[in-house]
């Protein structure tokens, strides 16, 4: 599904990713953990195609495609989804119109017929229940006036409607109280299946109590310095990141 080899990326003159390798197979959930400044969000943004990141070396293959050559929207059409750490508010752009346009853009790309208003409404009614999305949020401008938790829930709601092949969740757990964390996690778990891959980028082990990863990676100073199973996350929780950084050095 996703194969990253020796990825180097800079912001301005500062090198953030320094030779990152990662292989994600279909149906797997990978957690990428690491201290602040280790390059977690850079990785998520480079994969989604945000401007301002300069990839200097390495390859990223996504389903036989050179991911780095694709525009952000082309990545979305091809089934990649980024749940933002800080979802932006867009006054004047309606939440539900955006979602319908997104669904139909993806369907068009896949050669499927576009959904009309009724079909679309049927689709989202189901999905709204999963993340306990309130009706009135649907018809507001994208994220405008949403609380922190509502914004994150909206991200997971969009993800469940768009049904991506590869979802990248950038610190989705940050700023969530325990109830919101449970709802968001249930939403993510409901999307797990044999074809869909998920990358969870997180600072804390807490999220992994609710979403069980198949693999855990520790990112430090722009590289993955250790990989393991779910038990690695617990070890990190107990001993902190310094232990592993020293070991790697």
């Amino acid at each position: 599904m996703l194969n990253i080899q020796n990825l180097h990326a800079k912001i301005g003159n500062k090198e953030i990713l320094k030779g990152l390798n990662l292989n994600v197979n279909a149906g797997e959930v990978h957690a990428i953990m690491g201290p602040n400044g280790s390059g977690k969000s850079t990785l998520a943004n480079v994969l989604a195609g945000r401007n301002g990141y300069d990839v200097t070396k390495g390859i990223v293959e996504y389903e036989d495609k050179n991911l780095l050559e694709l525009a952000p929207e082309e990545r979305a059409w091809a089934g990649l989804f980024l749940a933002f750490q800080y979802p932006v508010e867009i006054p004047g752009v309606n939440n539900v119109y955006l979602l319908k346009a997104a669904v139909n853009a993806v369907r068009k790309y896949r050669g499927e017929t576009e959904l009309d208003a009724v079909e679309f409404l049927g689709l989202i009614k189901e999905k709204m229940k999963i993340v306990k999305m309130k009706d009135d949020l649907l018809n507001r401008s994208v994220n405008e006036g949403f609380s922190g938790g509502e914004k994150k829930r909206n991200e997971i709601f969009q993800m469940s409607v768009l049904e991506p092949k590869l979802a990248i969740l950038d610190e989705t757990d940050s700023g969530l109280d325990i109830d919101a964390l449970k709802i968001v996690s249930e939403g993510v778990n409901s999307l797990r299946n044999e074809e869909r891959s998920i990358i969870l980028v997180t600072h804390y082990q807490r999220l992994l109590d609710y979403i069980k990863p198949d693999h855990v990676h520790v990112l430090s100073n722009g590289k993955i310095i250790k990989s393991g199973g779910p038990e690695l996350a617990l070890e990190l929780e107990e001993k902190g990141y310094d232990w592993i950084k020293e070991k790697a050095a």
């Binding site: 989604a48 195609g49 945000r50 401007n51 525009a71 952000p72 929207e73 990545r75 979305a76 059409w77 989804f81 980024l82 933002f84 979802p87 932006v88 867009i90 752009v93 955006l98 979602l99 346009a101 997104a102 669904v103 853009a105 993806v106 790309y109 994208v142 969009q158 768009l162």
Partner: peptide, 12 residues
Amino acid sequence: MLFYLRSRAIDE
């Protein structure tokens, strides 16, 4: 905002 919309499959 532009990046957010594009990441949601809306062309530039």
